[in-house]
Structures are given as C-alpha cells and as structure tokens.
C-alpha cells in the first residue's frame, strides 16, 4: 500500500539516484543532478498535461453524446476511445494556414504560448504526498498569478489574426479574465484564512486533520468553480470562442497544429482549475484505501465532469451580463464571505 502510494516519489528517487551515479561515473559535479531532475519534472508535466487533455477531450465527447441522446464517437478503437488520437493526428497533418495579412510571428507565438501557463501552474499542484514539482510557500498565489497569464496568448491570437471576429473575441477574453480574477482570488483568500497557509500541500494536510474545506467554505467553492469556468473560457462563459456569435472567435483564423495547441491548452487549463479546486476544497490527495495520487485524479475527474455537464446544458451568457454578474453578484458575495470568515475566526 505504502509502496503504491509513493510509487511516483520512488521513481523520482530512483531517477535521481541514477543521475547521481552517472554524474559520479563521468566525473561531473553532482550539482547538475538538480538541473537534470528539473528537466525530468517538466517532461513529466508535459506528458501529464497532454495525456489529460487527450483523455478529457474524448470523455467530454462521450459525455456530451450521453447528454444529447446519441452514441458519440464510437468508431476508432474500442468504443471510439482512440478518437482523439485520430483527430490529433489529422490536425497535425493538416495544412497550417496563416492569413496573408496576419501578424505572423505573433500568430505563431500565441499558439505556442497557450500551453505554457497551464504547465507552469501544474508544477505547483501536489498530485500526491510529496508529488509537487515545485512545493512553493506561496503556492496559491503562484498558481493564481500563472493561470491569469492564460488569457494573454488568447488575446495575442485575437490581435494577430487580423480578423474582426477574432479581435472581438480577444477583447472579450481580457474583459472576462480580469473580471473573474477578482472573485476567484477573494474566494481563495477566505480558504487561506481558514487554513492559515499559502502552501498547497499544507492546505491538504490541514484538510486531512480537520475537514474538507468545501464544508467550511461552500460559498467560496461555488464562486471558485464559476470563476474557474469563466477563466477557462468554457460554456456558459465561452464568449471568446462563442461559436454561434463569433464563428470561432479568437480561433477563427487558426487551423491544423496551431488550432490543436489551443484546443489542448483549453483542456489543460480546465485540468489546472479542477486540480486547484480539488486541492483547496476537496481534500486534495487525501483519502482512505486508495493511493493519494489516484484520489487526486478521481476528484479532479469529478470536477471536470461537472464542467462538461454545465457546458452541454446551459446557453451562453451575453457579454455584458457576464461582467455584471461578476461585479454585482460574485464580488460582493465573496467579500461578504471573507468578512464573515474573518469575524468567525476572530471569535474562535
């Protein structure tokens, strides 16, 4: 049990041991091990990112099929579970079309940058006991700061495409991301007030000792989930993409590999948001019987499924209501929540 629980930690230890041995054999300074280990962590994160994205794309399509009373993809592989891989291959093989008057370097850069913020954020999230690549003291602040960056590549894409729909979409991204950053941060702050730490692993430990924070801060949880959906530009807040209004919004002029990168990045962003919600509210990797990392994956899976469920149920909100909902309802609510939390903590 203990072995399975620590399997990834042990693998990391093994790799580190191998590096140490190799460097000693080659007569190189042992300080290089840390550098090499960082590289290994990054590769691992990229692999996790892509695997998650691939899985959740097909899972979303399956779930959407179920919601819409149709089979969903069921041709490629067993019950169609390999469909995403087929789609990914198709997208990679496609011609990479760049509009003639687009800002070409930025157009390319946007697609590449889209992947960076979710990977940076994933580095700090503890997948299990001792399984955070970066166990930062200010983990929450770091993740919040990095996820905000996710709107930047989308804005760049909207600007660089030289298309009016893209530009409108890009403007909407900034509107939305900046606005929903505020209630999201406030919601997390009240959690931090209860837990008394910014470190993500310690917040999980706090929940192991006491209670899942979702029971202490239900309002913050709900607000966080809503803001997370908005931050990830998912329906009903998928205004930047807004298929029926803006054709494909910021992604109108993207095709092939570049579009695939955006698509994968969207799912990675969702995975990060779900992972953060799991860590902060649902006890992270803590749980009986099963190994910690499996608990983390299961809880994330549940939250992701909720995201998908919401997307395929609700109509899209109009741009101005998105903002008024944020500033007139969510922000006051979270502020009130913080006040109540503070008063209660002071009294206890």
């Amino acid at each position: 049990m203990e072995f399975i629980n620590n399997i990834f930690v042990n693998i990391a230890g093994l790799v580190r041991w191998v590096f140490n041995w190799l460097l000693g054999w080659l007569g190189l300074p042992l300080g290089l091990t840390d550098v090499l280990m960082t590289a290994v962590y990054w590769v691992a994160i990229v692999v996790v990112c892509v695997l998650c994205a691939l899985f959740y794309v097909i899972w979303e399509r399956k779930l959407a099929g179920y919601i819409q009373r149709r089979p969903g993809p069921n041709r490629l592989g067993p019950n169609g579970w390999l469909q995403t891989i087929g789609d990914a291959i198709k997208l990679v093989m496609k011609e990479d079309i760049v509009p003639d008057k687009a800002d070409k370097p930025v157009h390319l850069l946007a697609a590449l940058l889209a992947f960076v913020p979710p990977m940076l954020a994933l580095a700090a999230i503890p997948f299990g006991e001792g399984m955070a690549a970066l166990d930062l003291k200010l983990g929450v602040v770091y993740v919040l700061a990095v996820t905000t960056l996710a709107s930047l590549p989308v804005l760049l894409a909207g600007y660089a495409s030289n298309n009016k729909y893209s530009l409108i979409g890009g403007m909407r991204v900034v509107n939305q991301a900046i606005s929903y950053e505020v209630p999201q941060a406030f919601a997390l702050l009240s959690v931090i007030m209860v837990a008394g730490t910014f470190n993500l692993t310690e917040i999980v430990h706090f929940q192991q000792q006491h209670l899942w924070l979702v029971f202490v801060q239900p309002l913050a949880f709900v607000v966080y989930i809503i803001s997370a959906v908005a931050e990830c530009n998912r329906a009903p807040f998928d205004l930047p993409e807004g298929e029926s209004e803006l054709t494909a919004g910021v992604f109108t002029e993207y095709s092939g590999m570049r579009y695939a990168l955006f698509y994968l990045a969207e799912y990675c962003n969702m995975f990060v948001a779900a992972g953060l919600a799991t860590t902060l509210f649902l006890g992270g990797f803590s749980g009986p019987f099963l190994p910690g990392w499996l608990w983390f994956i299961l809880k994330t899976f549940v939250i992701m499924s909720v995201f998908i469920w919401v997307r395929w149920t609700l109509p899209r909100i109009r741009a101005d209501y998105v903002l008024s909902f944020c500033w007139k309802i969510l922000v006051p609510l979270t502020l009130l929540n913080m006040l109540v939390t503070g008063v209660v903590l002071y009294l206890i």
Partner: peptide
C-alpha cells in the same frame, strides 16, 4: 442551439 445550448437541438 444558437443561444449556445447545443444539447437543446437534439
């Protein structure tokens, strides 16, 4: 569907 709830069409 045009309002964004694609499931509504099925």
């Amino acid at each position: 569907m045009d309002l964004g709830a694609v499931s509504g069409v099925f």
